[in-house]
């Protein structure tokens, strides 16, 4: 990769407050195209805040710093514009929307993304074929399609549904917020297989997680440890293993 290549994501000195409380305190991070970065950290370190700020959730106030996505000012875009530009947030707590069915959401979302890419609306037949194929990867039953979005899904089913949406939408930058939480080992493997199937030189992924377990299956290029709203340490995948062994106090103590 040449030095001139624009990074997929460049976060500089980002300061974010939520309800008047400063959560991110000058976070700097760069993710190149094709890379998978893991964000680890203790509870309350700002991991989920980072994920939500990237997706544009209201209520998160950026008071300083910048976020550039493929060279564009990400913070200037509305949440739906970010999604259409190729940013995907996998929710830690996927929202149940009774009355809006999954197939509607998948199709509307796919068409929104396609429109932004200058592509025509997806053909109904092709769409079903695509969704069926991805559902197989995620081992989701077809009956899910006609059910309300996440309605009555178990925790594991909700997470698999998030990854299904990601596979259908094929984002450039996927931000997965604790997608591994609450998953048993089988579900974790399915989710990891889904994420890995999307890995490519044009795509990047930011995996936010509390434990290194997921990283055994989705092997990151870089691991960052977030402590009190900033990156306290970065390294390769061995950092995650060391963290697991020594605990977060090890880094927290250093960062203090």
């Amino acid at each position: 990769m040449t030095r001139a290549a624009t990074p997929m994501l460049a976060i500089r000195d980002l300061v974010v407050t939520v309800d008047g409380k400063q959560i991110l305190n000058g976070l700097t991070l760069e993710v190149a195209a094709g890379e998978v970065h893991a964000i680890m950290g203790p509870n309350g370190s700002g991991k989920s805040t980072l994920a939500h700020v990237l997706a544009g959730r209201p209520g998160y106030e950026v008071t300083a710093g910048s976020v550039s996505y493929q060279g564009r000012d990400l913070l200037a875009l509305a949440p739906e514009e970010r999604a259409r530009a190729g940013v995907f947030l996998g929710f830690q707590y996927p929202v149940e929307i009774p009355g809006v069915n999954n197939v509607y959401l998948l199709k509307a979302a796919l068409n929104a993304v396609r429109k932004a890419r200058g592509l025509p609306e997806v053909d109904a037949f092709d769409f079903l074929g695509l969704v069926r194929e991805k559902m197989q990867v995620m081992q989701i039953d077809e009956s899910f399609l006609s059910r309300g979005v996440n309605e009555g899904f178990s925790g594991g089913e909700k997470k698999r549904n998030e990854i299904l949406q990601m596979l259908v939408l094929e984002p450039r930058l996927a931000v997965l917020d604790e997608t591994d939480s609450g998953l048993d080992i089988d579900a974790l493997k399915i989710v990891a297989a889904g994420v890995n199937s999307l890995r490519s030189p044009e795509r990047s992924c930011l995996v936010v997680t509390h434990y290194q377990r997921l990283l055994e299956y989705v092997v990151p290029d870089v691991v960052h440890v977030l402590v009190r709203g900033r990156i306290a340490r970065s390294g390769d995948r061995t950092l995650a293993i060391e963290l697991e062994r020594r605990g977060y106090d090890w880094v927290s103590g250093e960062a203090a």
Partner: peptide, 11 residues
Amino acid sequence: MLFYLLSRGLE
């Protein structure tokens, strides 16, 4: 719910 749908690209 609204944010969830927006985050998927819906107008």
